[in-house]
Computed example of a mutant assay.
Amino acid sequence: MEKRAIFNELPRPTFRWLKVNYTESQIEEGQHPAMVTVFSEEGIVAPLGKRELLKESFLGANKESLEAVTAHYTAGFAVTVPDGAHEKVEVVIDADADTVNEKTRIFATVGENATLELLYHLKGRAESGNVTLLTEVLAKKQANVTVKKVQLLGEGVQQIEHRYTKFEDDSKVECINVELGGKENILYYDEDLIGERAELVHDLAYLGEKEQRFDISMLMSHIGKKTVSDIHTLGALSGKSKKAFRGTLDFIRGSVASEGAEEDTCLLLDPEVKSVSLPLLLCKEDNVVGNHAASAGQLDQTKLFYLMSRGFSESEAKHIIVESMLRPIIDRIGNEDIEEAALAAVRAKI
């Protein structure tokens, strides 16, 4: 009998009658670890060793999955960027076996006035199993961090991602996700904007087909004064694919003059797709600004007609519309080979 588990539960349960406060699933099992390769300058990356979580109360997408990748990872690395340095690190997770069981943990410390670009490339021909990724980032004063991720796993693989970021004064973090592969993608992002004037921008793009599932949870905790967060998720669903977005802006007492915004946009390409959007706003401080928006709908018929009137077939016109929506995010990856692989995956799915 399969063991069911709770994933991505809202921090303040609501909408109980709709049964969307969390996702119920199970952790898939596989046999072989993936091949994990790290590219960086010498001395920046070292084996992780045993390390406690950066945030003791970090919940992750699921307790059992988080505990497993924390203590029993198959690949673990510590990334340390000294004060004032500028570094790039690329992590390639290649799930090449038929059935995969991979748990990768990355702990990044970015020193004061330092810069880090961390790029993840998940790929492989695995037909089943699980890839779990835990990333913890400590962004010190005036640090600039960019975390980019392109996920092109096999269509039978479950992906679970846990990510936590701690912001100090004047730190800035930009996150870019391109989620295209996998059977079930469970993504959890917890951002603690502790320092004054800390800033977060997170853009996530996805494209679902067949029975793919994307379950996205983002928690932005505004703790310091004058902090800013701005998140966007956008994508398209076809076949019988599903997407759930749970975004929470939490203004803690003391986060004076902080601003937060979240927006979820989903394009519904077929009648049997399902999109759930739960933008949540929590506030214990008066002098703040919080905005949230969600939209889901079919293709713009005016755009479709215009393109078809120019000689494109209906399928070609749909392809152009969907690719034009996702491409601006893909083009920000900054690696030509990975961008081309992502675009090829988009074109194959439409």
Score class of each variant (00 low, 15 high):
Thr227Ser: 10
Lys183Ser: 12
Glu196Phe: 05
Arg163His: 15
Leu207Asn: 01
Glu136His: 03
Thr233Ser: 11
Leu204Gln: 14
Glu168Phe: 07
Leu187Trp: 06
Lys172Gln: 14
Lys103Tyr: 09
Leu133Cys: 12
Asp169Gly: 06
Glu174Leu: 04
Thr109Lys: 13
Lys226Trp: 11
Lys183Cys: 07
Lys103Gly: 01
Asn177Leu: 11
Leu133Val: 15
Tyr206Arg: 05
Ser128Arg: 13
Leu138Trp: 06
Thr165Leu: 12
Ile176Cys: 05
Leu134Arg: 02
Leu204Ala: 15
Leu237Arg: 06
Lys141Gln: 13
Glu161Asp: 07
Glu191Trp: 03
Val157Asn: 06
Leu116Gly: 02
Arg163Met: 15
Lys141Glu: 13
Glu209Val: 11
Ser238Asn: 09
Tyr120Ser: 07
Leu118Lys: 07
Glu211Thr: 14
Arg197Asp: 05
Ser238Leu: 02
Gly224Asn: 10
Lys149Leu: 09
His121Gln: 06
Leu180His: 05
Thr115Ser: 14
Tyr120Met: 08
Leu153Thr: 02
Asp203His: 14
Asp215Met: 01
Thr109Ala: 10
Ser128Trp: 03
Met218Phe: 10
Ala198Gln: 02
Ile106Ser: 02
Arg105Thr: 05
Ile231Gln: 09
Val110Tyr: 00
Thr132Tyr: 08
Asp170Asn: 13
Val228Tyr: 14
Leu133Ser: 13
Gly224Phe: 07
Ala108Ile: 11
Gln212Ile: 00
Ser128Lys: 13
His222Cys: 02
Glu209Gly: 13
Glu209Thr: 12
Asp203Tyr: 11
Lys141Asn: 12
Ala139Asp: 06
Ile176Ser: 05
Gly182Met: 09
Ser229Lys: 04
Ala139Thr: 06
Tyr206Phe: 14
Thr109Met: 10
Arg105Met: 08
Thr135Met: 08
Thr165Arg: 09
Phe214Trp: 05
Lys226Asn: 14
Gln212Gly: 03
Glu211Asn: 13
Ile216Ala: 08
Val110Trp: 04
Val110Pro: 01
Gly156Leu: 05
Lys242Ser: 12
Ile216Arg: 00
Asn144Met: 12
Leu153Asn: 07
